[in-house]
């Protein structure tokens, strides 16, 4: 911290115009907000919130990073990201208005997923792959959890391109400098 007297002194040695410019630049640099998100779930419904928040924050000029851990890693998995599902079991708010017990019959998850995807496309909602493309276009940092990869037997080649790998410390170091941190 500089005192008012020191600042006055500084502006007398530095050209006032240069001083003003440095002052503005210094404030501009610290003005970029950072958003750090954790995506921990691999269902269709829970893939949307972190991706929507990430693309929106990036569109607002914020710096964004998402840490994909546990089932959330499926969102980065080439073989799985297009076929994420939503289950009607233990989910009274499921898109298929049937008693919960019926959600347990074979095909329940398929039907609920089908209905939700149809509802989404009817409202022209982007798909998960489309949101991931937007993330990449906006330079959103995508961090795949290496512990999850080991536990679930996922290799680097199973993940989409442009993913950084790391552990909790990687995310926490990033999140420590964030103004917004959310666990999804």
């Amino acid at each position: 911290m500089t005192t008012a007297a020191e600042r006055a002194n500084l502006s007398s040695v530095i050209d006032p115009e240069v001083f003003q410019r440095l002052h503005l630049e210094a404030h501009k640099a610290t003005d970029i907000k950072r958003v750090a998100l954790v995506a921990s779930k691999g269902t269709l419904d829970m893939a949307y919130p972190p991706l929507i928040l990430a693309t929106t924050a990036a569109a607002m000029g914020m710096e964004v990073g998402i840490f994909f851990t546990f089932y959330g890693l499926d969102i980065l998995n080439k073989k799985k990201l297009s076929s994420l599902k939503v289950s009607p079991i233990a989910n009274p708010a499921a898109p298929m208005p049937v008693p919960n017990i019926l959600g347990m019959i074979p095909g329940g998850t398929w039907a609920a997923t089908f209905v939700m995807k149809r509802m989404m496309s009817a409202q022209r909602m982007p798909t998960v792959p489309q949101l991931l493309d937007t993330c990449k276009q906006f330079d959103v940092k995508l961090i795949g959890c290496t512990t999850t990869m080991a536990v679930m037997g996922v290799s680097r080649e199973d993940l989409i391109d442009g993913v950084d790998l790391g552990g909790a410390a990687t995310f926490l170091e990033y999140a420590a400098k964030a103004q917004v941190t959310l666990f999804v």
Binding site: I52, T55, T56, A59, Q123, R124, M125, P126, L131, T134
Partner: peptide
């Protein structure tokens, strides 16, 4: 028109 969050803001940014 007809699009929901996040698309209006994402498209405005682009």
């Amino acid at each position: 028109s007809g699009e929901y969050c996040p698309m209006p803001v994402v498209k405005a940014k682009l």
